[in-house]
Amino acid sequence: MNRFWRWSLQWGQPAMLYQRLLRLQPWVATLAIIFLLVGGYTAFWLAPADYQQGEVFRILYVHVPAAWLSMMVYGAMVGLALLVFIWQVTIAGWAMKTFAWLGAGYTLIALVTGAIWGQPTWGTWWVWDARLTSELVLLFIYLGIVLIFDVLADARAAARMAAILTLVGSVNLPIIHYSVIWWHTLHQPPSIRGLETSMHWSMLYPLLLMALAFLLVFVWQVVWHLRCRVLMEARHTPWLAKRLRSLNQSGENG
């Protein structure tokens, strides 16, 4: 148990974090590309067309993973906000900024693909039903968090303020999730509830692959951004200088 705690706490030290991210990056990148290729192939070629919607339904292989991710990222941000707010972990604040940017991106993807899907199936690009509205509110909350980081010069204060906003905004998450169950919405209820599903297996497994691919791409982006951020923040610290020196030496030797 002791070792586990030490291992977890080391993620909070910039030097250790950088090492680990560097080691993690090629693995995550390779896995993400493999899953994207396999998932994309199964989703856009192998999976059969839907009995009602035909080929259009394939948008779901982008829409659903993006929408899931938009909510998962926010959920993770709530955890980061607690780290920032209660334990004052500096790196959690850095991660929050990255998460907010990426979360806004995935929310936008979900909204845009949803609109493209809605036009042929529902007959309209946009309706003001509970699901669509609450997802739009999620986008605005993400943008608000991004803006806080942007507007405030003091990164530590910005992180704490963004953490408060994240915690307050988390009330929106259950509303998004349950909107299609609580109310009559034009958006259909989820096809996967726990272990039960109303999707045929031949269409379901590409979705799961794509969801995993999106998640891996997201982790890849986070690793990349966070690594750059650590370098930025540590540009005046001794460990970076030492590391650069050792890189130079190995370059000269090799």
């Binding site: 509110v137 605005f140 943008l143 608000g144 803006l147 806080i148 507007v151 405030l152 303020m161 307050v168």
Partner: peptide, 26 residues
Amino acid sequence: AVGVSVMQKGRYNPFVLAVLVLPFYV
């Protein structure tokens, strides 16, 4: 009140405040 206390007088920007506050008015 929560939104506006993020800003200092010198940095008050109504557009930023709008993005911070209006979603919660929905």
